[in-house]
Design a protein around this nucleic acid. Sequence first.
DNA 1: CCCTTAACTAGACGCAACGTCTCGATATTA
DNA 2: TAATATCGAGACGTTGCGTCTAGTTAAGGG
Lengths: 195, 195
Amino acid sequence: MAALQERGYAALTMQGIAARAGVGKQTVYRWWSSKADVVLEAMTGLADELVAVPDEGSLDADLDVFLAATFHQRGQRAVLVGLMAEALLDPAFAVQFRERFVFTRRAVFRSILERAIARGEVAPDTDLELLADIVYGVLWYRIMLDHAPLDEELGRRLGRLVVREATAGTGGSFLTGGASVLDRDAQRGGEGGQE
Amino acid sequence: MAALQERGYAALTMQGIAARAGVGKQTVYRWWSSKADVVLEAMTGLADELVAVPDEGSLDADLDVFLAATFHQRGQRAVLVGLMAEALLDPAFAVQFRERFVFTRRAVFRSILERAIARGEVAPDTDLELLADIVYGVLWYRIMLDHAPLDEELGRRLGRLVVREATAGTGGSFLTGGASVLDRDAQRGGEGGQE
DNA sequence: CCCTTAACTAGACGCAACGTCTCGATATTA
DNA sequence: TAATATCGAGACGTTGCGTCTAGTTAAGGG
């Protein structure tokens, strides 16, 4: 796993997986259907472990905790990039990838927003799918293109954006969270360029 | 090109490209360094052709035109997915892909926002990179995962979101564009599910 | 008009890793 | 001890990229 994160997905071969486990390739194929399947299982486990579902009492706080954990990369880029590449090339694996990883992650985000709806913080007809697409879209886009920093600070900024968009129209909140994308304190040095 | 869009990126072989052009493979390699390079050039040309830089006099209108064109897919998914997969697997191609395609597209978006800054519609210290990441992040995320509709309507909704976020704080505009993500009219039937 | 040179088409070849298949060895049960 | 199942090791078939070779056609100078 450590080797995977450093040397990249392509450097991981079934030969190597089997050798490292001290078994034959056939035995690996007994439990997993493909190389991608092995890595997918490892990543779902890791993600479940690293990203907990918070319950801090407010949308603001929940998102802050959840997105900080989600955006805190620990050298997972190479693995995620490999999985996505596999999903793009193999439609059958794409189904597995969506259902066992992507949608599971989105479900957590969704549950946070649904609790906010239950509390009355957010309107019930809010398009949670679009909000999830924005958060995970930016996350994946930066993972893949690697053109701008990807850290907890980005997670916090997107969290504020989500709160702002989700609570617009329910009364309060136009100005309470209202720092907008322009946040002075979020303007990190020199991130404007293109790589 | 039509065949590419229908049969997918993997179905396109160098053998086939050469045969279709009535030349030998070696001749194809004389002008392009790889299969991905051939497709990249085709796509940059197509994108330049289909997505013009509007100048409608206001950020609102500019974005509407630009994003409608950008989000109007014409069976390009298979090609874009193939290019992205290639970029994820091959770091050398990733550089080409970013510089010749991705950043070129972003530059158009950026120029629209910069004109809005010049007009005084948007604060000069707005983080245009993050706004671009949101728009293109959602675009790519839906292209790749294919879990929700990807059409001009989505482009318009993101356009309104960008206007709202970019003009927050400059006076006006909190309420002018202010429909928010919840837009009733944008709640298309049954798009809530996961695929 | 012929010969040299350049560029071209066709296709064989090497390569790499996946996933399958075979074989001999080991462990388990009667 | 003998029969059966499982396993490690690795050979094999497969695919398509990118390179390399060989024989052919077109261009230009003497």
